[in-house]
Computed example of a mutant assay.
Amino acid sequence: MKLIPTQLPEVLRIEPKVFGDSRGFFMESWNRTTFASIGLNVDFVQDNHSCSGKGVLRGLHYQLRQPQGKLVRVTSGAVYDVAVDLRRSSPNFGKWTGHELNAENKHMLWVPPGFAHGFLVLSESADFLYKTTDYYAPEHEHSVLWNDPAIGIRWPLEAEPALSAKDKAGSLLKDAQIYP
């Protein structure tokens, strides 16, 4: 397993060992001991799976109470995955990092608590899996606008994205409730 630093030091791209042959492939996507040995000593309490069509943008989501660390990956299709630092005390506050995750490269991204997270589906559809370090708590969930000019995410858009009502109503960073 290989850790690749991103522009935000706490957000890590993970390249698992993939063993492939004419029958297909095998990879270990989570092993507590292996992850602890590379510095990610985390406990996961919930697994989530979403399937979305091309052009769907989900995010930028975060929970102030019960903040979630997320280990994310794609098992079918491709997405552009984004994390934004929402910790006011961080030297990287308001900065973002984006990475393509797809079924072919099998890369994963570790998004720690204190970051907003979102993704845009690039393929006809995508199956997106994520393990979280705390439970989903809708009463504590917030959303920052995906296109906030103060953040300036360069989404690889071909057209206007398909958004949920919740994501359309997200806050600008300057008005958002954020981490200390």
Results as ranks from 00 to 15, higher is better:
147 N>G: 13
155 W>N: 06
163 L>S: 04
135 Y>R: 08
143 S>P: 00
61 H>T: 05
163 L>W: 00
56 V>M: 11
154 R>T: 00
80 Y>M: 01
59 G>A: 07
122 L>I: 09
99 H>Q: 08
7 Q>F: 04
10 E>N: 10
114 G>R: 03
14 I>S: 15
46 Q>E: 09
133 T>K: 10
49 H>M: 07
16 P>K: 08
70 K>A: 06
176 A>F: 11
177 Q>E: 15
49 H>W: 07
168 K>C: 14
116 A>P: 04
8 L>E: 10
105 N>M: 07
18 V>Y: 12
83 A>Y: 06
6 T>C: 02
133 T>W: 13
71 L>Q: 04
17 K>M: 12
136 Y>L: 02
109 L>E: 03
23 R>Q: 12
31 N>P: 15
24 G>V: 09
133 T>P: 07
14 I>D: 13
152 G>P: 05
103 A>I: 09
107 H>G: 01
83 A>I: 03
36 A>D: 15
75 T>G: 06
92 N>A: 12
30 W>T: 09
158 E>D: 10
33 T>Y: 14
1 M>K: 05
118 G>E: 02
43 D>P: 09
26 F>Y: 15
39 G>T: 12
172 L>W: 13
53 G>T: 11
149 P>S: 11
8 L>S: 03
25 F>N: 08
118 G>H: 03
119 F>H: 00
162 A>R: 02
74 V>Q: 08
50 S>H: 07
175 D>G: 05
39 G>C: 10
98 G>W: 06
125 S>Y: 15
55 G>T: 11
150 A>N: 02
19 F>E: 08
105 N>Q: 01
17 K>F: 14
19 F>D: 04
112 P>A: 02
179 Y>I: 13
91 P>W: 12
41 N>V: 11
70 K>N: 01
132 T>K: 11
177 Q>H: 14
32 R>N: 14
23 R>Y: 15
137 A>E: 00
161 P>D: 04
100 E>K: 06
171 S>V: 07
33 T>P: 10
95 K>R: 10
41 N>Q: 08
171 S>D: 12
57 L>F: 12
110 W>G: 04
95 K>T: 09
49 H>L: 06
159 A>Y: 13
88 R>F: 11
147 N>H: 11
88 R>M: 15
166 K>V: 01
87 R>S: 01
113 P>M: 06
101 L>Q: 02
172 L>Q: 10
173 L>E: 06
38 I>W: 13
116 A>T: 09
115 F>A: 05
172 L>Y: 14
166 K>A: 04
80 Y>P: 00
127 D>T: 12
14 I>K: 07
83 A>V: 01
83 A>L: 00
51 C>F: 10
122 L>G: 11
29 S>Y: 14
72 V>Q: 01
20 G>Y: 07
29 S>C: 14
154 R>G: 02
45 V>P: 05
70 K>V: 06
130 Y>K: 13
152 G>T: 12
19 F>L: 12
58 R>N: 13
99 H>M: 01
2 K>Y: 08
157 L>N: 05
154 R>S: 08
109 L>H: 09
138 P>A: 00
79 V>H: 05
159 A>C: 07
65 R>N: 12
142 H>N: 08
38 I>P: 05
170 G>T: 09
168 K>Q: 15
